[in-house]
Nucleic acid binder design. Structure first.
Length: 395
DNA sequence: ACTCCACAGGAATTGAGGGGTG
DNA sequence: CACCCCTCAATTCCTGTGGAGT
């Protein structure tokens, strides 16, 4: 006879969190710290919108975790408030463009602007031109000022022609009752250079630069957020300082600091500790790193996962750097085990290895042995092999 | 200076999947 | 129904190339 077990869900100790959502990525703080300078510049750039004249296009540059997105969201709220006062009609769309094509971007914008009861713009079948026409129609229907915020704008394929078209929408007569402004957010400072000179001319933009947070600024931000999200005295001063120091090393990345804070809190709860300490921060940092790697691996295609897995196997076996054909032969036998149809050409595998290198999963080294060896690439796994080998290749 | 290896990597094409218009 | 558009992985075909050997 076994004793009935206590409900495990009623058995938790007291959590160190008082509001754990305040550390999540989607949380919008009601006060923005340490970005006064940026906010002032932003406000100046947004002035035409409040005054109801044609808005300037704005480009926001800065490293990841420098507050670009948070400040932009904040400024949007402020814009609505200001426009309500001045009586200007305003509509905005905020869109993260990561891994999107121009078509996808326009289509998503149309759907965001469309009323609920209207049908969605189809995912396939129509041209980008059709999508743009639909977009102009939606914007014009709303009249007033429309601001399109394109986060990670540098990730859009064919961004050039898209920006060209959007910034000419008035002169081409596509818009009659409305004006449109674009706010682009990017952590790639060379973004302007990839635009054609034709587009650069029309897409005359205001530029905002977000400088990385210093260790002191990060400390202030993390302390403020810790106050909201943790119980009183549930985190030590030293833990916050350490977390700020780690984030400062990662080029002032506040997002990383908040993630680590979150992970450290979870770790403390797991251990049933009453206070988050430096040890929890260190474990939290490792968990965040691992989580980031896992997420990136999961975003790969099955083929890419197999190839990365192969590379990690070779790495763990001390057989790297390995050349393409060595990787290819092991790869085919791994496919056999997992039941995946292997790619039939090394050309395709090379393509994937190339992509993996560009995304930082692998290191590509060029070798040249001249007449009796020719020119070829060798690869190494640049992720920790033990984490990669945890990939489940089945399904 | 020329050769020539063993690929690298560009370009074009295919083919499946999902969908429109008139 | 015929015809066209978008996407994405994969394949086929091919030209390009850096440097050790001669």
């Amino acid at each position: 006879m076994t004793k009935p077990r206590e409900n495990p869900l009623l058995n938790f100790g007291e959590s160190v969190f008082s509001n754990r959502d305040a550390l999540s990525e989607s949380y919008e703080p009601d006060r923005i710290l340490e970005r006064d300078e940026e906010i002032n510049q932003y406000a100046a750039a947004l002035r035409p919108i409040v005054e109801g004249s044609t808005p300037d296009n704005i480009m926001v540059y800065g490293n990841t975790g420098a507050g670009k997105t948070a400040v932009t969201r904040y400024m949007i709220d402020m814009m609505y408030e200001a426009c309500e006062n001045s009586g200007n009609a305003l509509s905005t769309v905020f869109l993260n463009c990561n891994e999107m094509t121009a078509f996808k971007v326009v289509r998503t914008l149309v759907n965001e602007l469309r009323d609920e009861d209207k049908d969605e713009f189809p995912a396939r079948g129509l041209s980008t031109r059709d999508a743009l026409d639909a977009l102009y129609e939606e914007i014009d229907d709303r009249a007033g000022t429309c601001i399109l915020v394109l986060d990670e704008i540098d990730h859009i394929e064919n961004i050039d022609s898209l920006l060209y078209d959007l910034s000419r929408s008035h002169s081409t007569g596509n818009l009659e009752h409305a004006t449109v402004g674009i706010i682009g957010i990017s952590n790639d400072y060379t973004f302007r250079d990839i635009l054609s000179s034709k587009t650069r001319g029309t897409f005359a933009e205001e530029e905002l630069d977000f400088t990385p947070y210093t260790a002191n600024e990060l400390e202030a931000i993390l302390r403020d957020r810790a106050e909201i999200s943790f119980r009183d005295d549930a985190i030590t001063e030293a833990a916050i300082n350490l977390c700020a120091a780690i984030a400062a090393q990662d080029s002032g990345n506040a997002r990383q600091g908040l993630d680590i804070l979150h992970a450290a809190g979870k770790e403390a709860d797991k251990k049933d500790d009453k206070q988050v300490t430096e040890a929890h921060i260190r474990t939290g940092k490792r968990n965040v790193e691992r989580g980031n790697i896992e997420r990136r691996i999961n975003s790969l295609t099955v083929q890419q996962q197999h190839i990365l897995y192969t590379l990690a196997l070779l790495e763990a076996d001390g057989q790297t750097p390995a050349r393409t054909k060595e990787i290819y032969s092991l790869y085919t036998s791994i496919c056999e085990q997992s039941g995946l149809d292997p790619l039939s050409t090394t050309r395709s595998v090379r393509e994937h290895l190339d992509k993996l290198s560009m995304q930082g999963f692998a290191d590509q080294i060029l070798r040249n042995k001249g007449r009796d060896g020719g020119k070829y690439h060798v690869y190494e796994c640049s992720m920790r092999a033990d984490i990669v080998l945890e990939i489940d290749l089945r399904e």
